[in-house]
Design a protein around this nucleic acid. Structure first.
Lengths: 340, 340
DNA sequence: GTGAAAGCGCTAACAC
DNA sequence: GTGTTAGCGCTTTCAC
């Protein structure tokens, strides 16, 4: 009766294994064996079953298989942005695919509530594991899921409130490298503009820059400008850094958004004269004039490691929690080598 | 016994509705009602059940719900690249979310076999619908899925071998706009470099460019260069177009990859002198010198429409197949307004 | 209003 | 080797 109802609703019923078994004249179990390539099935049965499958256009229902076996063969990635340049995500996808895992990717969109919705939904779907580029400030609500055995790995930033595996860049070294590169090219007043210190990486990078200034006996005043990345805030920071009594001759930007905002605020002429090293790779950096010197994160390595950590956790839920720090690399292209 | 085995394997068992019902001292059905916010449950039952849920850290298993109800609440997007700038995908995600649908995004990665694997896998998962940016040349293998009622929408390109809803840009108009813009700025020898004519959009755009040339009484020889987008091929095309006896004074590029390859091949100085209009928006187009004039696709509109078409198809499997053509828009920024 | 029982489509015991 | 049976965790008839 259920069936009759559904058919009359307009949607054609899909054949199930039962239908295939009847069509082939074999038992349900045999069809299941053929579908799963069980080598212990007699070849004549294989032929019969495959014929029936083709005749009915049968497609196994993965949902039922997943419910029965308990595994989905799918891992989730909750990143701040899919649909933007995101080499970590690309590496995650590649690595997952190579491991025979399907990737379910979703954007948290810099929204704490949305991040929570997505993570909870992934848990309800009983995905085999989750990689998250955390955004929210408190993830204690995930503790029950972790207790229930859900494998979870943090990428780019650690999580607060729960203890999970994590892979991230060596932010402090990257800022140090940028500073020293400019210093070596003769600059003595070097300024920093970057993300808000409410954000983990913003905090780490601003602190590392202050440390670099102090290590060279320089004062900090007027040179370190963390904060929201808006045109107004960045313009004000540039004004302070470059127009004061002791103007900076070089600039380090703390992430890609900052770099682009700075370039747009300065305009092509001024930008071409300012020594600049950006943290994070920038698309088309090589086409700008001068081409942009950056400290690049090893994004492919980060994404790959995230999947490796996740797989290790899936294989052994009891293994100790691990944090992997990936080194960064300076890409010398021109803007960072301008003289003072 | 099964349970004991699984527990001994190290993975803690998650509580099910049965456990919640026992804990709360109510029937299974009542727990289901509470979980689904059925308003006909007595308030004291709601309290008891919610207490039990909290006590056990119960999370419903979506797989079981999906199997039972037949719907997943999830649509799939098989695009050529997630993890690259992909405004269509961003719009799909936004629109899907606004409709209460989860998005499962996967990269076909310009690989026909992979596209096939992904689409078949999405069908096996019985997703509620699929949006595909088709890459392969023959999708007849999807016919059984369509017959079985799987809603499917093509984006950016039509599909061959099956008849499905489609949303795409007005390629021909876009090329015409680019040509006329350069023509209006005094150029008479205008060349075209673009994607291979094996690709649908490459075919449409090259044909439109030839038509524009002819409409202005110009010859075609040496001016139209469709083909693979490699540094060598583009360099050769540039050589032919710009260094011949009648060198072109302006150039139309057929997609983003072509535009970037041309800019890299020319180098900053030569690029700054060539009148250029690109098809497709380019990241950081405003930061180049001169800023890049492009024919931009209305990507947000395309992604939104793809979801709308899919939802319409899900609601009414019998509705006639529809193709939506979205207009393009010229973005005047500098490179396309250089004199001859 | 609530509760018992059937069943979504599949896989895994177990006997044959 | 193959067939029968139970059950994954949930929703949904139906009687109460």
């Amino acid at each position: 009766m259920t069936r009759a109802r559904r058919e009359s609703a307009g949607r054609p019923r899909r054949p199930t294994m039962v239908d295939v078994a009847r069509e082939a004249g074999v038992a349900l179990r045999t069809v299941s064996r053929v579908v799963n390539n069980d080598p212990t099935v007699g070849p004549e049965y294989v032929t019969k079953v495959e014929a029936a499958i083709a005749a009915l256009n049968y497609r196994p229902d993965d949902r039922a298989r997943q419910l029965r076996t308990g595994v989905t063969g799918t891992i989730g990635a909750a990143v701040r942005r899919i649909a933007e340049v995101n080499p970590e995500l690309a590496a995650i996808e590649r690595t997952a695919r190579d491991s025979g895992l399907t990737l379910l990717a979703a954007s948290t969109d810099f929204d704490e509530a949305r991040e929570r919705d997505i993570l909870i939904s992934m848990c309800r779907q009983r995905l085999d594991g989750i990689i998250v580029e955390p955004f929210g400030e408190n993830h204690a609500y995930l503790q029950p899921e972790l207790d229930a055995g859900m494998p979870l790995v943090a990428m780019d930033r650690p999580m607060s409130g729960v203890s999970v595996d994590c892979v991230m860049s060596d932010n402090a070294s990257g800022i140090g490298i940028a500073f020293h590169h400019l210093h070596r090219h003769g600059h003595r007043r070097i300024a920093y503009i970057g993300d808000s210190e409410r954000v983990f990486s913003g905090r780490e990078r601003a602190a590392a820059f202050r440390a670099a200034l102090r290590a060279h006996g320089e004062g900090v005043e007027g040179l370190v400008h963390p904060g929201e990345i808006t045109a107004e805030r960045v313009a004000a920071a540039l004004e302070t850094a470059l127009r004061g009594p002791e103007p900076a001759t070089a600039l380090v930007t703390g992430n890609m958004d900052t770099t682009l905002t700075v370039l747009r605020q300065l305009g092509p002429q001024a930008a071409a004269r300012l020594a600049l090293v950006g943290f994070d790779e920038v698309p088309l950096a090589d086409l700008l004039q001068p081409a942009l010197t950056v400290v690049a994160q090893q994004t492919a390595e980060i994404g790959r490691t995230a999947v490796e950590l996740l797989r290790a956790r899936m294989a052994d839920p009891a293994r100790p929690v691990q944090t992997v720090v990936v080194p960064v690399a300076l890409k010398v292209r021109g803007s960072g080598e301008l003289p003072a």
